[in-house]
Design a protein around this nucleic acid. Structure first.
Length: 405
DNA sequence: GTAATAGAGC
């Protein structure tokens, strides 16, 4: 979200330039450093056309000018353009490699990132950190952790980005043993615990080891931001500690930190977990009216889950039908799940029909619907769904959910 | 000049 926004420095930069009336006149005596600063300024602001124009016009370029272009394209999601510049570079340094790895990481091309990484003769700590972050962001948790251990065995000090990446990977794995072994490396040096890495640790503790550990860390943080609060609220909600989650939601606003869409996902989940339907509705209202946040399908999924868990399935279905946009698999999935819990075949069928269309390859939906019938002793229908699944070439065992043809 | 953290259902 924050990456799409133009940073304030960029605003100043571009406004100064537009005040001068487009690009400043090209001066022969401008040295390479000032040319480069201009390229970097445009690139950072995401104004790649302008960056490109200056880059093409500058009489002389250095490795920083080239790298600024690579990073700019990478951050604007134009990986192939970044790659083109990267390949043309007369010389590269650690920052260039790092920018290119990150560019591939952002667009989900882990193999591309790894290929670039493997081309480096002697990877420096920042390129390793970028590679770890790339793995973590794309769900390659084991690879991220492996690379982190490799760094340690080589006695390369992991910087903050590497730490944050490996913590995020641990969080995704959810393994308390691995999480604790990584946490030990952090706790040895609390003075180095920055806001970002502490935030990452809060989520990891909440998911992997203990929510109380997360709470203790949170209490000891000298500075907290929206992510610290959101991570804690989400963690408390996941553990069914709704009251505390909502108390922190109040506390964050008293501290002058405004909640965002993600915070509300946590808040609604907290209500859902303990069946606080009215409160959930109230928070949903507050989100849209007080905070002016347009509800995402995720928020509708939370509301459907909240109503569904409380057994108010018809109301949940009514809410889906009143949605302004198209309901996604998450929304229908929440209804189907609730129908399983409350053994409601009629609404379950409706939800399943939508899910079969939206995600035809997801076997879980077929299994759920079949199980709803089975729990009502409607064996013929249960078998009919299983048969449908087989006919569509799907295997019902989760371990080998291959699709034939 | 580079790298980073929080999010629904089965």
């Amino acid at each position: 979200m924050h990456k799409n926004g133009v940073p304030p420095s960029a605003f100043t930069f571009s406004s100064v330039l537009s005040a001068c009336g487009r690009l400043p006149a090209i001066q022969e005596d401008r040295d390479v450093v000032s040319w480069t600063a201009m390229v970097a300024g445009f690139a950072k602001a995401g104004l790649m056309k302008d960056a490109r124009r200056v880059f093409d016009e500058m009489p002389e370029r250095n490795v920083v000018s080239w790298t600024a272009m690579v990073a700019g394209y990478a951050n604007s999601g134009e990986v192939s353009a970044a790659r083109e510049i990267f390949d043309e570079m007369p010389e590269k340094n650690a920052v260039s490699w790092t920018a290119m790895i990150a560019g591939y990481g952002k667009c989900g091309d882990v193999r591309g990132a790894r290929q670039v990484f493997d081309e480096i003769c002697v990877p420096d700590p920042t390129s390793r950190a970028a590679m770890i972050a790339c793995y973590a962001q794309n769900g390659f948790s084991n690879e991220a952790i492996e690379m982190y251990w490799e760094m340690r065995s080589l006695n390369v000090k992991a910087n903050e980005v590497a730490m944050v990446g490996v913590i995020s990977a641990c969080m995704q794995l959810g393994d308390p043993v691995i999480a604790n072994s990584i946490a030990k490396h952090m706790e040895g040096r609390p003075s180095e615990l920055t806001l970002v890495s502490a935030n990452a640790l809060i989520s990891m503790y909440a998911k992997c080891s203990s929510i109380d550990h997360a709470l203790r860390l949170f209490d000891n943080m000298p500075e907290k931001d929206i992510i610290s609060y959101t991570a804690l609220i989400t963690g408390l909600a996941d553990h069914g500690r709704a009251q505390e989650a909502l108390e922190f939601f109040d506390e964050m606003q008293k501290a002058g930190i405004m909640p965002n869409q993600i915070t509300f996902v946590g808040v609604l989940n907290a209500c859902s977990y303990v069946g606080m339907v009215d409160e959930g509705y109230a928070y949903f209202e507050q989100m849209t009216h007080t905070f002016g946040i347009i509800p995402l399908t995720e928020h509708y999924a939370c509301m459907v889950d909240l109503l569904g868990r409380a057994g108010r399935l018809k109301e949940a279905h009514g809410l889906i039908e009143s949605m302004p946009g198209a309901p996604d698999a998450g929304v229908w999935g929440a209804l189907l799940g609730a129908c399983k819990v409350h053994c409601n075949a009629e609404l379950g069928e409706i939800a399943a029909r939508h899910l079969f269309e939206i995600e035809p390859d997801n076997t879980g939906n077929y299994v759920l619907l079949s199980n709803i019938y089975a729990s009502l002793n409607r064996w013929d229908e249960a078998e009919r769904v299983r048969k449908m699944m087989r006919e569509r070439g799907m295997s019902k065992s989760p371990g080998c959910s291959w699709i034939s043809r």
